[in-house]
Design a protein around this nucleic acid. Structure first.
Lengths: 153, 153
DNA sequence: CACCTTTTCTGGAATCATTCAAGAATATGC
DNA sequence: GCATATTCTTGAATGATTCCAGAAAAGGTG
């Protein structure tokens, strides 16, 4: 992962000051991709002892603005963040537990960007969200939805 | 638009009671696709005289649950709703003004659903959001950002 | 057609994520 | 080392959405 080799250098390259909260956030995102603000705060606090929620929001905004971090926001779930990796990947979101995983689009590096360039919009990005059920949730909900315990005849 | 021929029948078919707020919401969505809750409330109130915000939310939830209405939620914007049409279309969202337009995916009726079925998720829907600039915003921001009116030499 | 049950609507308050504001602390260039 | 611009802290505000309990209305039934 070229992204994590030197967070300090990456911050400097982006013209951002190197601060402890920023390094902590980057470090956390390296370990937990798709984390939400809450998880990031918790993990960062575990590392630094204390960080304000504002600082986390500000850091994420700054990192997102320079493109070091990417913000994803699946419907119905708070914003999540991931280290920006060069490749053009998308996400699968679990309908029941909200888990997110990366998915490389089947069409190579520039998937689906060829919308029938409708309505005069100039399109610069195609974001694909796959909705489904994650392995864990599939396992616990065998076929249809049945809450009745096994032993009930 | 087969969807609008008889809202009453559609409600009945879906097993929902026919109430004035529901008819109003459907009627409004027929005229303003991609409306947010606020616009829907306003338009519905203009028609019925008075409707509580709750009623609007409840109606939208009920209609969405039975599939008569589809909820879309582009990042950074409140939820928007559209009458569920059978075809599998996607949306272009304008980055500066938030305008939304429908886009038929270039791949026919089941676009991009062929994600490299990663991580064991069972995928049932692919949602594509195109991000760009709408004609109006493109026009007012000619090349770089310039607010200077045309007549200024 | 009147009645009864279920579902829906009203009004008000609560929640969650996110943002705003003003001052204190800190990183960086000279 | 110091000055200054940027970043972090604390505390409160905002906006969308949901929860709650009671009043009203819809639709099937006798």
């Amino acid at each position: 992962m070229p992204m994590l080799t030197d967070p300090v250098a990456h911050l400097r390259d982006a013209g951002l000051r190197v601060t402890r909260p920023r390094l902590a956030v980057i470090e956390v995102l390296g370990r937990q991709p798709h984390a939400d603000v809450d998880s990031i705060s918790d993990a960062a606090r575990a590392e630094l002892g204390t960080v304000s929620t504002q600082a986390i929001y500000d850091v994420l905004k700054a990192l997102t603005a320079v493109g070091l971090v990417r913000r994803i926001e699946p419907a119905g779930s708070p914003a999540r963040f991931e280290l920006r990796v060069g490749d053009n990947h998308h996400h699968v979101v679990c309908r029941s537990c909200g888990a997110i995983a990366d998915v490389d689009c089947a069409h190579g590096s520039a998937p689906c960007l060829t919308a029938s360039n409708d309505h005069g919009f100039s399109i610069d990005e195609a974001e694909v969200t796959y909705w489904g059920t994650c392995p864990d949730c599939s396992a616990s909900t065998t076929s249809t939805v049945r809450q009745i315990p096994e032993g009930t005849p």
